[in-house]
């Protein structure tokens, strides 16, 4: 989850040592916001820590303050009401995967979160952390975007709401300001004949980082015509991105092979990947189309089964 440029001994990160680092664990959203407001730019939100502690160990970060948000009830709760599923930002993968209602309503989001790390990591890693770490390859993010998730963001001026696709600014960068944090994710409750799915490609079968990720959500009417659709891709651009052209290709149609070919073409058009140790540009673009089709097909099967 981290690159190795730290640890080479090339550059010193100032004279700050671990002794200069502070830790706070507020029990309310307001107290967390206040702690952030009082801190300098090197404060970090600490949820599961599965990315953050690795970055600390690799000396990629030397925070002045860790604000642990796990004691704030709103970040630790999953609630389902008539219109939304709300997942607290510090809910872990293991907790989400054992939540029957969430699993039934949002199988794509849950399966995406379950792909993060190992069984041990699942016990710590959080949905909000995976989002805010802002890796272009984060598994939960395309699934959240496809499901239409919004982030509830707390800051000095109270709460604001931002669509997940608009929260991301680039690799390891979000549009959050330094004194804001994500409290929870609100996902519209899927209607009848509406379902989501997430797939990723890795060269192994687990314990890896997505080379390409694809999240899809579809809604069908009684005769099988698509009335709503969202497709999102991960690891093929600086941030996970929504592919509106793929939705356009599906909405108002029965999704047959011709439509799926248009979905794949739209997905490939939306790619702007890099060559790196995890995959090549050509491979990522091609596989984005393959996974887009497969994810849409799974979402359709799930919607039809409802």
């Amino acid at each position: 989850m981290t690159d190795r440029h730290a640890g080479s001994g090339l550059e010193s990160r100032g004279t700050k040592t671990l002794q200069d680092m502070n830790y706070e664990a507020p029990t309310s959203v307001e107290a967390a916001v206040a702690a952030l407001a009082a801190a300098d730019d090197e404060a970090h939100i600490f949820a599961g820590g599965t990315d953050l502690l690795v970055q600390l160990r690799e000396e990629m970060i030397r925070p002045s303050l860790f604000v642990d948000i796990k004691r704030i009830i709103e970040t630790r709760t999953i609630t389902v009401d008539d219109t939304h599923v709300r997942i607290g930002a510090a809910v872990t993968g293991a907790e989400l995967s054992e939540h029957d209602a969430a699993k039934a309503l949002l199988p794509g989001v849950v399966e995406a979160v379950e792909l993060i790390g190992s069984a041990q990591v699942q016990g710590r890693a959080t949905v909000g952390g995976n989002l805010c770490n802002a890796s272009p390859a984060a598994d939960s993010v395309p699934a959240l975007i496809a499901a239409g998730a919004f982030a509830q963001i707390a800051g000095p001026n109270g709460l604001r709401v931002v669509a997940v696709e608009d929260l991301l600014a680039g690799p390891s960068r979000t549009n959050l300001s330094g004194n804001e944090f994500v409290v929870s994710l609100d996902i519209p409750k899927p209607t009848t004949r509406s379902a989501d799915a997430y797939l990723r490609f890795i060269p192994r079968t687990e314990m890896d980082i997505a080379v390409v990720g694809a999240g899809a959500a579809v809604t069908l009417d009684a005769d099988g015509t698509c009335t709503a659709a969202r497709l999102a891709l991960g690891a093929v651009a600086p941030t996970a991105r929504l592919v509106p052209a793929a939705a356009t290709a599906m909405i108002g149609k029965k999704i047959d092979d011709t439509v799926l070919a248009s979905v794949a073409a739209a997905a490939r058009d939306a790619c702007n990947p890099i060559d790196d140790k995890r995959g090549t540009v050509a491979f990522r673009i091609h596989v984005a189309g393959v996974l887009a089709i497969r994810a849409v097909k799974i979402a359709i099967e799930r919607a039809e089964a409802k």
Binding site: R204, D208, I209
Partner: peptide, 24 residues
Amino acid sequence: YIYDDEARLQNTGFLDYRMPVASD
């Protein structure tokens, strides 16, 4: 082993040095 243009090793851990895992 994946090297960059300066012959610096890019995959210095088991995450990106892809040995098989049990499920593979």
